[in-house]
């Protein structure tokens, strides 16, 4: 496949990568930029492990082409973790949410979006927004951490 130079802004830094422009953003982040905190789970937008913030909104990066993402500000889990940590991350640690941890980058970024849209979400709003898959079954703690972050 023909490669071309694509410029994208990730965590405030501009990058130019030479890739097939149809490559999903997920794989540019992971394999071209070395930002491995964003995870591959399904490749079909069915699990949420690859969730990143694009222009501030949570998007699944596994089916968004790098070309489509190129003009926008992209935040990955690595970019959220400034000093001090984001309140959602602090709440995640306080509630000891992760088990294996694989889905948690996507979970956290989805929760960041939820709290941007709804300052104090109800249980029902959390259930509706948080459809990310966690095979370890950390859902109860995810819910508790979102409530905790909302109160922070």
């Amino acid at each position: 496949m023909a490669t071309q130079a694509v410029t994208l802004t990730v965590n405030g830094t501009k990058h130019t990568v030479n890739v097939d422009p149809s490559t999903p953003l997920l794989w540019v982040l992971r394999d071209a930029l070395g930002l491995t905190g964003t995870k591959y789970g399904c490749g079909i937008e069915a699990c949420g492990a690859c969730t990143v913030l694009v222009g501030g909104g949570a998007e699944k990066s596994c089916e968004m082409s790098v070309q489509d993402a190129s003009g926008q500000n992209i935040t990955t889990i690595e970019g959220l973790a400034a000093t001090p940590m984001h309140k959602v991350q602090l709440a995640w640690i306080a509630e000891q949410v992760p088990q294996c941890g694989y889905c948690q980058s996507g979970m956290i970024l989805k929760a960041v979006e939820l709290l941007q849209q709804t300052k104090t979400p109800t249980d029902a709003q959390i259930s509706a927004a948080m459809s990310n898959l966690c095979v370890c079954g950390t859902y109860q703690r995810v819910r508790a951490a979102i409530h905790r972050a909302a109160a922070m």
Partner: peptide, 18 residues
């Protein structure tokens, strides 16, 4: 508190796939 948990909230934990 599990010492491995912070690295699982900031993307720094290295799984096999990483």
């Amino acid at each position: 508190a599990r010492p491995d948990i912070p690295s699982k909230t900031d993307g720094s934990a290295i799984f096999g796939i990483d």
